[in-house]
Design a protein around this nucleic acid. Sequence first.
DNA 1: TGCAGCATACCGACTGGTCGGTATGCCTGT
DNA 2: ACAGGCATACCGACCAGTCGGTATGCTGCA
Lengths: 201, 201
Amino acid sequence: MTAKDKLLEAAVKLIRSNGFAGTSVDQLCAEAGVTKGAFFHHFSSKEALGVAAAEYWSASTGGFFAEAPFHALADPVDRVLGYIDLRIALIGGPPEAFSCVAGTLVQEAFRSSAAIRVAAEASIMANARALEADLDAAVAQCGVAGTTGASLARHVQAVIQGAFILAKTQPEETAAELAREQLVHLRRYFAMLFGRETGEE
Amino acid sequence: MTAKDKLLEAAVKLIRSNGFAGTSVDQLCAEAGVTKGAFFHHFSSKEALGVAAAEYWSASTGGFFAEAPFHALADPVDRVLGYIDLRIALIGGPPEAFSCVAGTLVQEAFRSSAAIRVAAEASIMANARALEADLDAAVAQCGVAGTTGASLARHVQAVIQGAFILAKTQPEETAAELAREQLVHLRRYFAMLFGRETGEE
DNA sequence: TGCAGCATACCGACTGGTCGGTATGCCTGT
DNA sequence: ACAGGCATACCGACCAGTCGGTATGCTGCA
């Protein structure tokens, strides 16, 4: 594992815990076990590391969801609900274990760094686009009017990001449960929209 | 207007634009037109200002929504939808004009400052509690099963926070529209849940 | 095979400037 | 005269970023 990869891993970990501005280059180097020389050899600035971290994050999470088994389900509604169920299952532990690097980055840097804003947009919208086809199919199949698959895909990302923020307001014991609650509401919205009236569990 | 108020106003403005860690005490003083002596006369530390800013924010927005006209509506479902419509109407311009100080604070400081985390939690959960009675009444009136007014009230806050994050990924021209789109989904969810099937607009 | 020439990867001391925070004193209203 | 409200001047720590240098390995030529 090269110094660059170790720095990107360290960036994901520290940005999730302390934010981007709250993480110094020295901290990143210490966490990665490399020196400042290595840092600026691979990244022209701290901002460039932020951009690279968003891309690295996007690539690794995108790959994970692309391989998930829910894609094999025949009904597009099942695939959509399967995605939400997977997201729910992935939420556990403290917020820094399940929160989103891109969301954290853009919240802090949307005004101070256009490059980071664009990289975070790309990451979040790529996540949305990965759901778009299934949602379009579900919308067509169920005759849903008044919205689109693309709009619903963006809403999924919004609820996920909002869930992470609410979780961060909580002490560690209750954070994950509050985040899951938000995705359960999203699931209920989609179930109603696509005619899957859920009885009590 | 005293130096303390000017500093709190400056804090709201700068935290929304640049985040908490991204805003220095010197910048806050310059924006407020006071000196560092005044700053540390009124706040024992930068962290204390963060806490005070969350409380100031909570008090001013809480007051605004408490006085809004939708409370006069007879049907609790109308009051809930009226709140969402008001939130939609308030979204416009760049993200720093409509985003939430408490959400921004907690995202950055949830791990580094327990005091700020608790203050942000208080702000966001106070917003949720202000909706809880109407949502409980709507749940009871419509016989909604499987959730509660309190849980739905938290979801409103989650969608709002998520909407702000998505808006921050956008260039200024499209930010507000993307945020509004999220609240329109929330409105549709509630309309379905409470038996107000919305036809096309 | 061996060596010159060069690029890549990395090191860590150092710099100028900014950070949050402090010490002290002036100024105004009572 | 004295206390609250604020300004000026300053501090040491830490910040992002620089720079001279070393180690390693690839490439082409003899």
